[in-house]
């Protein structure tokens, strides 16, 4: 069944197409809660794909890191889900691509984004979708940030 995720990425261009869907949101804003939820599902789907080595490799080659870094600056409400995805991308130590991804993440300027979340920075713009977060959500965010930092140090 490992083949499924590989097949999704390689023959259906699934990874590329999911990244293209996200790419569209670099220029437009998210206005509806359902739209936000759909994008969260896309990001979570990418997280699952990143558990397979060739998918993680493909993610880096398709400039997934650059796209999501750019998206996290423009779509603040998606930032915590993007951080979760970075956690998946750089902390799967059993995968050979994980170390390469970790180096690439630092080279492309991922650290300021991680520390920004850690410091809970980021201004809300007028008209931004407001998503209420629970204490557990904040704890999960901190957990993802810590995982990334530990992953990068190892």
């Amino acid at each position: 069944m490992k083949d499924y995720n590989s097949k999704f990425v390689l023959s259906l261009n699934g990874m590329e197409r999911l990244l293209c869907i996200l790419n569209g949101y670099r220029k437009k804003s998210i206005s509806l809660e359902e739209e936000h939820e759909a994008l969260v599902n896309v990001l979570d789907g990418l997280c699952s794909l990143l558990l397979v080595d060739e998918c993680a490799e493909q993610f880096r080659r398709l400039q997934g890191f650059e796209l999501l870094m750019s998206l996290s600056k423009k779509q603040g409400e998606l930032r915590r889900h993007i951080i979760k995805l970075f956690d998946y991308a750089v902390t799967q130590h059993e995968l050979p691509s994980s170390a390469k991804n970790a180096r690439y993440f630092i080279e492309k300027g991922g650290l300021p984004i991680v520390f920004g979340v850690f410091m809970q920075s980021g201004k809300k713009k007028k008209g931004d979708l407001v998503i209420k977060l629970t204490k557990e959500d904040h704890e999960q965010d901190e957990q993802h940030v810590l995982n990334i930092l530990v992953g990068l140090l190892i």
Binding site: M1, K2, Y4, N5, F8, R17, L18, C20, I21, S31, L32, E34, E35, E37, A38, L39, N41, V42, D44, G45, S48, L49, L51, V52
Partner: peptide, 29 residues
């Protein structure tokens, strides 16, 4: 997801099913 209307309910449903599918494939692994 690429061409659908983001404000339609089908957009969210498609994303949910796709995610469930990818996640299940992982669970099987």
């Amino acid at each position: 997801l690429e061409k659908g209307n983001p404000s339609s309910e089908n957009f969210l449903s498609s994303a949910e099913v796709l995610f469930a599918l990818i996640q299940s494939a992982h669970q099987v692994i």
